[in-house]
Design a protein around this nucleic acid. Structure first.
Lengths: 206, 206
DNA sequence: ACCTGAACACCGTTCAAGT
DNA sequence: ACCTGAACACCGTTCAAGT
């Protein structure tokens, strides 16, 4: 069977989900596709390019995934929604957060869902630089939080957890708390702290 | 000359600062120390352990670095100070942020300066879980922001920057803005938003 | 106790040559 | 156009054997 760029990408995701990012090698991928290692380089210039394509695929699924859903109103609800979808997209694949974080390092300040966040923030009246910085900060939180959760999963799989003494707080709770802090702080910067309707008992949206 | 654990660590930092994390290999390190690759494994069980020791060394320097300096008063000033020192420590070594971030993945929820942050937050009356989650969020921001800055430096060094079209905002500005958002949001969660004395023109402390 | 020598089992990438 | 075969220049790690 003829190899396609999409088939390579699909095979890469299969290995990622089953064995993790550390075991995703070009040789292993070639082997799984029934092809010689060198054959992959006709479809992707190098491994970095392949990983970047995977990262983009994951990150963009956070934006156009629910294009038909009713968009929430207000910057706070919009940022809450896009952050939640971003997080869900990262957690969809094993080591997804680490993969996307590595992708951001190659193209800093660009890509989705960062650019959507910037637009939402600019609509609040924030300047370009401030919107960029705030969106980056929110992105760093979501990526960092998801990376921590997934590497914790990884450690459990390997059976290398220190007695479960320092147990992490519930991931959903800590995510919502961190997101709440950020959005409250943003509200302060925007209009002097008149926001936050009832964010106390708000759980994972949808 | 006899090899010591400290000499290995020192040699590793030399290679890190000069060539970056990607070029820090056990063979290269051994070569620089005038030793066979296998010799390193008497002092460090494996590469991961060596990298973890480097990460700990960087991260802890953010805590006991200015032990004699007058501690600022109030949780806000304390968190501002420790975040700034953490950031400075990460930027001290090439790829320092990436290295420390990888170290956190091995021991999630523990280590410095995270634990110092948790203590500061608990003194404000926050519960253990909330303090842990907030400290983690702040840590994710500092690590993410510093990683972005350093990988941007890396790209400039390699001459692989897309025309400087999407120029990043000034790092100090975006750091202070992100930190300000977080601290403002924390103030809201704590006492309903009575804080933020004059955080507008506050720049990088010390 | 501390390190050498030499091997094992891998990597990513290149590139002539085949079809 | 698309892939094979085979090589190049590396990796981390192990472990008998030396000192």
């Amino acid at each position: 069977m003829r190899l396609t760029r999409e088939a390579v990408l699909h095979g890469a995701f299969t290995i990622l989900d089953e064995y993790g990012l550390g075991d995703l090698t070009m040789r292993r991928l070639a082997n799984q596709l029934g092809v010689q290692p060198g054959g992959l380089y006709w479809h992707f210039a190098n491994k970095q390019t392949l990983l970047a394509a995977m990262a983009t695929s994951i990150a963009e699924s956070a934006t156009h995934a629910s294009a038909s859903l009713p968009e929430p109103d207000g910057w706070r609800a919009e940022l809450e929604a896009i952050s939640g979808r971003f997080r869900a997209a990262l957690l969809q694949h094993r080591d997804g957060a680490e993969l996307v974080a590595a992708g951001y390092a190659l193209h800093p300040g660009s890509g989705e869902p960062l650019e959507s966040m910037i637009k939402i923030l600019q609509r609040t009246g924030l300047g370009v630089d401030a919107a960029q910085a705030a969106a980056a900060a929110l992105t760093h939180f979501v990526l960092g939080h998801s990376t921590e959760v997934q590497s914790h999963d990884q450690l459990r799989r390997a059976g290398a957890l220190p007695t479960d003494e320092d147990r992490l707080p519930d991931p959903d709770d800590s995510f919502n708390l961190g997101l709440g802090i950020f959005l409250d702080g943003l509200a302060v910067q925007l209009d002097g702290g008149a926001a936050r309707p009832t964010s106390r008992q708000s759980s994972a949206s949808r």
